[in-house]
């Protein structure tokens, strides 16, 4: 079934919900591995660096952000690994998914309304349109 499952995570509650679905699917096949992809957003790096005292502190801060998802995966009985990408979230997830030829992309949706989506842009929508594999958007 789905062997290489990409779970896009920004560390939010939506990502935790997506992680739950990822675990359900991964549990079906023993060889499945969940690849937790966290994108360090270019638009936030300046402010991130300014507000941290060192690159080590920033690294810990980012790990903390993603900790809810990791904790959940630790508790469940599935294989997983983590990948950190840098750039524009939607774009980088798509690029990585297509390059690595993952079997399934799972991503949480922020549940924006039409206006917010126009202004902010929906990452999950972008990813779904552009990946070459099935995508699961978790509400």
């Amino acid at each position: 079934m789905y062997q290489h499952i990409l779970l896009a995570s920004d560390g939010s509650e939506n990502a935790v919900r997506a992680a739950k679905e990822a675990v359900k699917i991964a549990s079906c096949t023993p060889e499945s591995i969940i690849d937790v992809v966290y994108v360090v957003d270019f638009d936030k790096t300046v402010s991130d660096v300014l507000h941290s005292n060192s690159s080590e502190a920033l690294d810990i801060e980012r790990r903390k952000k993603n900790s809810k998802v990791i904790q959940f995966l630790n508790e469940s009985n599935v294989q997983y690994k983590t990948t950190i990408l840098r750039g524009k979230p939607g774009q980088e997830i798509v690029k990585y998914a297509n390059e690595q030829q993952v079997d399934l992309v799972i991503i949480g949706s922020r549940g924006l309304n039409a206006l917010q989506e126009m202004v902010l842009g929906s990452v999950s929508h972008k990813v779904m349109k552009r990946v070459n594999c099935p995508a699961l958007i978790v509400k």
Binding site: V40, F42, T45, D48, S55, L58
Partner: peptide, 8 residues
């Protein structure tokens, strides 16, 4: 530092 972080 910012470029270090952006490019990893």
């Amino acid at each position: 530092r910012i470029v270090d972080d952006m490019t990893g």
